[in-house]
Design a protein around this nucleic acid. Structure first.
Length: 254
DNA sequence: ATGGCGCGCGCAGCGCGA
């Protein structure tokens, strides 16, 4: 089994990249964030022609998440149970006995902004919900754009980023609290030598200079972590014409 | 040097992302 996640920054623009990536990597479930696509406009037919069915939870201009899969997904749920949120950031479903949650955590904008307070509140609700999800689904994977670089080694220049959103202590505490629920950070299970950034700013030739952050993650429940054989970042799509500023993360299971 | 780029919206230039 192969699970993957990608913040596509507009599915409309990135559809050719998504189709090419599916053909090459053939994930069992592909989690997409920032589709920025209303459900009535979702490119379901093009994906179906590529062998993938889709569950989508989108809105105009902002946010939007989707699950693509080759086999049928069951027990779909939208959003965080018990947390009313206008913004469409979470979709979940089950493949066999594996529960897959696709999440787009708020960015936060700046530490003194309402958006940052929303991010922390959102992360608290996410934490509470994931605790109950873990109790319900022993095999649980939570994939997505967390908008948090968990440690300094996930940041190209920790000094430059100090005091900014994505690296602030409160956000990192919230991420660590998710791990304390019992999740493993799949990429860190394999302790790669390279930085394994997943996002590079469009500006200032940040990708060419490798000025990136690791903010897209795959968290695995203990039962799934035990079965995880590999986890890696695929930087190839960042080199394409009109790339997303994020790149896919993949987990493979025995 | 606090911008830079790219997206949606909608037709100019702004809000937003990270």
């Amino acid at each position: 089994m192969k699970l993957a996640t990608w913040n596509v920054n507009s599915l409309k623009v990135r559809l050719p990249h998504v189709l090419a990536w599916l053909a090459q990597h053939q994930p069992d479930v592909f989690c997409l964030q920032e589709t920025k696509t209303e459900d009535k406009d979702f490119p379901a037919a093009a994906l179906e022609a590529a062998g993938y069915r889709a569950l989508f939870y989108g809105q105009k201009t902002y946010n939007g998440v989707a699950l693509l899969s080759r086999a049928e997904l069951n027990e779909r749920s939208d959003g965080i149970a018990g947390y009313a949120d206008e913004q469409k950031r979470v979709i979940a479903a089950t493949l066999g006995d594996v529960r897959v949650i696709c999440a787009y955590v708020p960015n936060g904008q700046a530490l003194d902004s309402d958006k940052y307070r929303y991010k922390l509140e959102w992360l608290h609700a996410f934490h509470v919900w994931l605790r109950s999800e873990l109790a319900r689904w022993p095999k649980l994977a939570v994939l997505g754009d967390y908008n948090i670089a968990p440690e300094d080694r996930d940041v190209h220049d920790p000094k430059q980023w100090e005091g900014q959103v994505l690296v602030s202590p409160a956000e990192r505490d919230a991420f660590r609290e998710l791990l304390h629920l019992g999740f493993r950070d799949a990429l860190r299970m394999f302790d790669p030598v390279e930085p394994n950034f997943t996002w590079w700013d469009y500006r200032a030739a940040a990708f060419r200079r490798n000025l990136g952050l690791r903010i897209d993650h795959i968290l695995l429940s203990p039962a799934l972590a035990q079965a995880c054989a590999a986890c890696y970042v695929d930087v190839a799509p960042r080199k394409l014409e009109r790339p997303s500023d994020h790149t896919p993360v993949v987990a493979e299971f025995s």
